[in-house]
């Protein structure tokens, strides 16, 4: 029973983290392209900012993936 809960916990972490990041990066990428299309001369600046924000958004699900794997393979197994 307890082990099953661990797997569910891992699945939730992976799934919800991926969901949030997917929405976030989708919006971010879309806006980046919009901005780039509107003002192509700003692309270098936008790209830097894009990567910074992507790093910020990407961090949380990546942490979730790490902890989920820890739970799945090191704790539950």
């Amino acid at each position: 029973m307890e082990q099953a809960l661990m797997y569910i916990a891992g699945a939730l972490m992976l799934g919800l983290g991926a969901l949030g990041a997917a929405i976030g990066i989708g919006v971010l990428g879309g806006r980046f392209l919009e901005g780039a299309a509107r003002q192509p001369e700003l692309i270098p600046m936008l790209r830097t900012q894009f990567f910074i924000v992507m790093g910020l958004v990407d961090a949380v699900p990546m942490i979730a993936v790490g902890i989920a794997f820890y739970v799945l393979f090191a704790v539950a197994a």
Binding site: M62, I63, V65, G66, F69, Y70, F73
Partner: peptide, 20 residues
């Protein structure tokens, strides 16, 4: 601190799992 730690920890974790 947590952002850096979490990213690196997760990356390390995945490398370990691949190594298995």
């Amino acid at each position: 601190a947590l952002r850096l730690f979490g990213n690196m920890y997760a990356g390390e974790m995945i490398f370990i799992l691949i190594a298995i």
